[in-house]
Design a protein around this nucleic acid. Structure first.
Length: 260
DNA sequence: CTTATTCCCTGATTGC
DNA sequence: TGCAATCAGGGAATAA
């Protein structure tokens, strides 16, 4: 995305009427498309799970792919391809196609990206992310630590896979109240979050389901997870069977032997 | 303020 | 084999 989009101008934009919730702001898809047409992309950025395209005009085009969304860069229009919910033609003749089977994806065209991402917690791969950052995110939070890890206002960008992997790597039980973690545990969890996300980025993401990048390529990190969706299989450390429970409305996987 | 629950959506999986 | 019910999941909305 960073390689081909900066400098390009959107010369045509269309959102399909079968994706009525895709346009979050302006809420009418025609208005969002009108606003995007003629805009030149200056830079590509990210905050948590949100993509931010800063435009030369000063506006920000913000996109969230959610579960099954993908922004695909194509030489040709994705004519006849299933689940294409929006298309954007660029001034070099290529296309950016938004494919989204489950229609959970969202986009905004705003004066300031902070209107969308302003309430997110700190970036776990940012410079200042420390055990103290976690302590402040967990203060007064009696909810299970797994649920707080998924709370984007506490820490930005951690999803279900990486919450389970980080808790496993740090040896912390997912049901522990977040505010009950000791300083040592906060330090271990901080390091586990950083190493888990760094490894996942190195593998270009996890394609348990349909995730692909702008070139249509899958990530490989789903091949390297230690605990996620491995219910009943032996723990890689102690051999006990991996257990699955529901927490924060999500499937949660952990080793009853290693995670206290 | 926090926490829990429901909803959105549809392909894949499971159950009879 | 066929059809229906269930499941998966991020985050918004709602309720308590």
């Amino acid at each position: 995305m960073q390689t081909f989009l900066p400098g390009r101008t959107i010369v045509h934009a269309a959102i399909s009427p079968d994706a009525p919730r895709l346009a979050k702001w302006p809420p009418q898809r025609e208005e969002l498309c009108r606003g995007l047409t003629g805009q030149q992309v200056e830079s590509v950025d990210r905050r948590g799970k949100y993509l931010i395209f800063l435009l030369r005009s000063g506006l920000a085009w913000v996109v969230h792919l959610r579960m099954t969304g993908a922004l695909l860069h194509r030489a040709e229009e994705c004519e006849g391809e299933a689940f294409i919910r929006a298309r954007f033609r660029l001034d070099d003749g290529t296309w950016l196609c938004f494919r989204d089977v489950r229609k959970f994806g969202m986009m905004w065209l705003v004066d300031d990206a902070e209107e969308v991402v302003g309430k997110l917690g700190p970036e776990p791969l940012g410079n200042g992310f420390s055990p103290e950052s976690l302590a402040s995110a967990f203060a007064r939070r009696a909810a299970p630590v797994k649920a707080v890890l998924l709370d984007q206002a506490a820490i930005a960008g951690i999803g279900n896979i990486y919450a389970d992997e980080s808790l496993f790597e740090s040896g912390i039980h997912p049901t522990r109240p977040a505010s009950s973690l000791s300083a040592d545990e906060l330090g271990r969890l901080r390091n586990a979050i950083v190493s888990t996300l760094t490894r996942a980025v190195g593998d270009r993401g996890s394609s348990f389901d349909s995730y692909v990048d702008a070139k249509g390529e899958k990530g490989s990190h789903h091949l390297n997870v230690r605990i996620f969706r491995r219910t009943g299989q032996p723990c890689p450390t102690c051999g006990q069977a991996v257990q699955r429970i529901r927490l924060g409305g999500r499937s949660t996987h952990f080793c009853p032997g290693c995670q206290k």
